[in-house]
Write a protein that binds this DNA or RNA. Structure first.
Lengths: 226, 226
DNA sequence: AAGTGGTCTAGACCACGCA
DNA sequence: GCGTGGTCTAGACCACTTC
């Protein structure tokens, strides 16, 4: 019996073998279903998966074609920092460096799209077996926080958020930068070292939740399979 | 009528509202299908999507539970470099710096998992409107190349590969590094500048295809939505 | 207007993983 | 075992897009 993964494999091999060159319009679902002797839904599943991974481009009425300039799609896992530390076999620790109300700098206001006035500014050093792993610089919308505040010296803002304000949408970006003086001092590395920086901005349906910037210790790699 | 996206939204909202706290076992597909008045397949589609994005964990027999420590999954687009340059509204250019057979350094051999002997070593500078954008350092398995060789001064190895050895599997990783002397010279930036580095390793079903390292000009950001 | 992919249904069988 | 999710089928209707 042919499952959708078999269909996917067969389609892929036809593309690889140039039976269906890049940019080609391939037969419709009905035709393929008949050829392979399966239901149309099975072909649909196979082709949808290939479209999701960037190999095919599908449009109603226009049909399905092999992507001309394939854009590979890779999936990144974004774990909670503690999980990331423990996955490396290290002991997680955390040190709260700052936790106070303040006016966010303009770039942060701009990214959040509005001026919320005073926000809660938290700086945390995450440790892996006692060594600096990540410096977290976070601005939080005070409107989403409970009163009294959670104890951010015991549970990182990162983790408190996923447990209590879970599953918001947002965006994330990665870049390489020279370590600022304060980040370098916290991580115990030379000023200006090349560091991997993650910036994330998350939103509730109605209002901004948080903006955060993670400065990773040198040697950090973000990896995934294609 | 309730579509699978409505079901997904409803499930998400129950998680957000803590009706189904983190770690909870949620009702089975059959039960939910009945509750929402849809077919089980529709519920399955909704829950599968949520599992794919890391919100739910599903196991046969064990059932479906809300992920205790959610691992957010983000999708990265990995375009061909020329497309990336043109997407920024710049004019793409390319300069071939090196193209010769040589023995790869040990780290490259190690990543490929075997010693292939001599490989084709290609260095390319990719330009965006005349300015250095990316330096590509690539080692190619000569067995997959045609004779005579493609003209890598006209079409980048990057692009030739997606068009002719398409859709292999592999892995990719990102890091921040200090620019090496040669990369800095090619990009016209100070030595030791913090640069964003992409490393990719791709495989055919049977043999390695290529190992490549991309050094991006300062200011490069990799971004996506969550 | 017509053709294509996207989705839904009702039912069925199967594979996995727990007891 | 046996319950759960994973998948398949045959048929249907709909939404989108191009003509």
């Amino acid at each position: 019996m042919a499952g959708w993964e078999d269909i996917r494999a067969e389609v892929l091999s036809r593309i690889r073998s140039k039976a269906w060159p890049l940019g080609t319009l391939i037969p419709g679902e009905e035709a393929l279903a008949q050829e392979f002797g399966v239901a149309r839904a099975t072909v649909n599943r196979a082709l949808s998966e290939l479209a999701r991974s960037g190999v095919l481009e599908r449009k109603r009425k226009a049909g399905t074609r092999v992507a001309a300039l394939p854009v590979r799609k890779a999936t990144l896992d974004i774990p909670v920092i503690r999980a990331e530390v423990e996955a490396r076999g290290a002991v997680y620790g955390l040190r709260l460096l700052r936790c106070e109300m303040d006016a966010p700098p303009l770039p942060v206001q701009a990214r959040l799209g509005q001026d919320l006035g005073q926000m809660l500014h938290i700086e945390t050093l995450h440790l892996a077996s006692g060594r600096g792993f990540v410096v977290e610089d976070r601005w939080l919308n005070p409107a989403i926080l409970p009163n009294p505040l959670p104890d951010f010296a015991a549970i990182s803002a990162n983790e408190w958020l996923v447990a209590h304000v879970s599953f918001a949408s947002g965006d994330i970006s990665f870049a390489a930068e020279a370590a600022s003086n304060s980040a370098a001092a916290a991580l115990g590395i030379p000023q200006g070292s090349a560091v991997f920086v993650t910036e994330r901005c998350t939103w509730a349906p109605d209002a901004p939740i948080t903006w955060v910037r993670l400065v990773h210790a040198p040697g950090y790699r973000l990896s995934t399979v294609l």
